[in-house]
Design a protein around this nucleic acid. Structure first.
Length: 674
DNA sequence: ATAGGGTTAG
């Protein structure tokens, strides 16, 4: 299409006709999108010689096009020369350039441009400052961001709802929901009316990082406030309930809306699709997508990424990749996030070759990784223990002009911590500070975890104190990490102390807290206490998960027979869903209890139903082979303990063999939906 | 705003 347009334009020139300025601009946009810079410059020269005169609109489109391709220097020179062609750079052009600098992580040069535009007599708009505030927030520098808001008021600009939304979002992302609330109050007191975005940020923030009660309270208040139209309220409720894990309720609202003839927005559908995918219910995600298609809504890039995330997290990577191609073929908006989601999926599966392949393909298709994509790659490599390769990538991204942000530093720090190389991790934390980044709660949680796992609890506690000094408020993950560390150290005094500390700071234990504590009891063979913890969890209204089950089962296998049977009966009533770790637990117990042949027999049966083992499974199988070879077999398959093990393995096998027969998604269904 | 980093089971 673009080449034809180019041909027509040339013929127009040949017959002496002058194309319109807007036609030229559209053509520039196209040529820049496909990266045909040769034609861009040729057409530009033609324009200068033969008209039409380029307008500000033409220049801005070119500046935007070059910025999107990462050619910031070219964009900057265009802005600087446009004066020669009777075009004065306007606030729009500057904003594009400032934003491009911010996206690359070059906040200080963005600030330099703001300075320069003022010197050149172009007044920055509220949008200019919004871009800056956003950039500072994504560096974790909410304090500076807040200062910008004060400064713009001093120069006589009045903040609007958008800039407040950006700042509130920044605080929520920094896990400071309290401060986010204060900003909300502040904007209201200034008479600025919050919009749907404000509430979406706040409600999601409360559910994600704050307290669920606050989320509910805000939703209730919102309903009586009469500020927003009904459909916005529904969108926000749906998103909030999704984050609260109350998917059935969210779905109910969506269905109610449809019954009432209201049209839920793409955001509402996306929230539900994302939540289903996150919860491992990818088939339900596709059902919602189908519904969305029925009402001919246009999927956004986040719709696509969320659907792919559902498949990818379940390890269904071939299908995910196939859908990715189909989506691109249909012209759906696929961006770097979709590729990042797949990249993560390959790493999660331990398929390093697949991960590297999707990484290369993304770049071959002209989709360039951003800081988060780099961090996903760096994170995957570090988790696989390939820290040197990860570090090379870190250097590569800096070479490419992408400033590493907190995501990247945190991934790398986690990589060093996982290998126990705490000193190098600490060095990176100092380096991020030198680069103007502010270590966030993630950084501290990663480092605290590193100390818990590879150093002393004293050092972990010191890091916890450092975190306070840095003005950060510990969150549930911080508490869980420390409680886990003290559990491992069997320091029950400190465990209880931190549990109390956690309650005092307004945090209720979550499923992870309970799992950690149950694990603590199981590993010290206090199964009665573990069961008590399970009961406590249930009465607190927390839903146990597969981790709970696996932890308990692992304890049960080690326990005395009578109690083991009672606990097993209790667990089975709860209808848990097993996974590969469940089988690994059982297989390793077959080995530990002197039955390597039984372990291998079950492996054989599982592979017959194409069960997907993981790296750990293969290690256990190796161990079983070695045990047979070294003649380490001592259990009779008829003892009570081994019968219990056989029984547990049988029901696990049975679950997988049934779920295999369940109707898998039809591979063509995606095409049928769209 | 809705997608991509940190805590838990072998």
């Amino acid at each position: 299409m673009g080449t034809r347009a180019l041909g027509i334009l040339c013929r127009m020139r040949d017959v002496g006709a002058v194309p319109s300025s807007s036609a030229m601009t559209t053509l520039f946009e196209f040529l820049l999108r496909v990266g045909d810079y040769g034609s861009v410059w040729k057409m530009f020269r033609d324009m200068i010689r033969e008209g039409p005169c380029p307008s500000n609109y033409t220049f801005n489109a070119m500046i935007l096009g070059f910025c999107r391709k990462g050619h910031l220097r070219t964009a900057e020179s265009l802005l600087n020369v446009m004066g020669k062609y009777k075009c004065n750079p306007d606030v729009c052009g500057y904003n594009i350039l400032i934003n491009a600098n911010c996206i690359r992580g070059w906040t200080s040069s963005a600030l330099g441009w703001v300075q320069l535009m003022i010197e050149r007599g172009c007044t920055p708009s509220i949008l200019t400052f919004n871009i800056i505030v956003n950039a500072l927030c994504s560096e974790g520098n909410v304090v500076e961001a807040r200062k910008v808001l004060n400064e713009i008021q001093e120069i006589g600009l009045s903040p609007n709802v958008a800039i407040y939304n950006t700042l509130i979002n920044g605080h929520v992302k920094a896990r400071d929901v309290g401060q986010a609330n204060m900003l909300y109050e502040e904007m209201r007191s200034k008479g600025i009316i919050p919009d749907a975005v404000t509430f979406n940020i706040l409600v999601a923030g409360h559910f994600k990082f704050g307290r669920k009660e606050d989320g509910d309270r805000l939703l209730r208040e919102l309903l009586v406030m009469d500020l927003l139209p009904d459909h916005s309220l529904c969108d926000i409720s749906v998103a909030g309930l999704c984050w609260a894990g109350r998917l059935d309720e969210a779905m109910e609202i969506l269905e109610n809306m449809l019954e009432k003839g209201m049209r839920p927005s793409v955001v509402a559908y996306n929230s539900v699709i994302a939540a289903y995918s996150r919860a491992g219910l990818e088939e339900d995600a596709y059902k919602v997508f189908k519904l969305m298609m029925k009402f001919s809504l246009t999927p956004s890039s986040s719709t696509c990424s969320s659907l792919l995330m559902g498949l990818s997290r379940k390890g269904r990577l071939e299908e995910a990749r196939e859908h990715l191609y189909k989506m691109m073929h249909k012209g759906l908006p696929i961006n770097k996030v979709a590729f990042t989601v797949l990249l993560e999926g390959y790493f999660r599966k331990g398929d390093l070759a697949g991960a590297k392949d999707i990484w290369n393909e993304m770049q071959c298709r002209g989709i360039y990784p951003d800081a988060v994509a780099f961090s996903a790659f760096i994170n995957g490599l570090s988790k696989a223990g390939l820290i040197e390769e990860a570090y090379d990538l870190f250097l590569e991204m800096s070479d490419k002009g992408l400033m590493p942000n907190n995501f990247v530093y945190n991934s790398l720090i986690a990589g060093f911590c996982n290998l126990g190389r705490i000193n190098e991790a600490q060095k990176l934390r100092r380096e991020m500070k030198q680069n103007g980044l502010v270590p966030d709660i993630f950084t501290f949680n990663i480092i605290i975890n590193g100390f818990c796992k590879h150093a002393t609890m004293k050092s972990a506690f010191d890091a916890f104190m450092d975190m306070h000094c840095a003005g950060l408020v510990p969150d549930i993950v911080t508490y869980n990490t420390l409680i886990g560390g003290y559990c491992e150290a069997f320091d029950m005094v400190k465990v209880n102390q931190f549990m109390n500390n956690m309650y005092a700071n307004g945090w209720e234990p979550d499923i992870t807290t309970y799992n950690i504590r149950i694990h603590g009891f199981c590993s010290s063979r206090k199964m009665n206490r573990a069961v008590m913890m399970l009961d406590e969890l249930l009465s607190a209204g927390v839903v146990p998960d597969t981790v709970t089950y696996n932890t308990m089962i692992n304890g049960v296998c080690k326990d005395i027979l009578d109690r083991a049977m009672i606990i097993t009966a209790k667990l089975l009533k709860m209808a848990f869903i097993p996974n590969v770790i469940t089988t690994n637990v059982l297989l390793s117990h077959f080995c530990k209890q002197g039955m390597p042949r039984r372990a291998l027999m079950w492996c054989q049966k599982l592979s017959e139903i194409s069960f997907e083992f993981d790296q750990v499974s293969y290690k256990i199988m190796d161990q079983a082979y070695r045990n047979i070879h070294e003649d380490i077999e001592f259990s009779k398959a008829t003892s009570g303990k081994s019968l219990l093990l056989e029984f547990l393995m049988y029901i696990t096998y049975d679950y997988f063999s049934r779920s295999r027969h369940k109707q898998e998604m039809n591979p063509e269904s995606f095409e049928l939906i769209v």
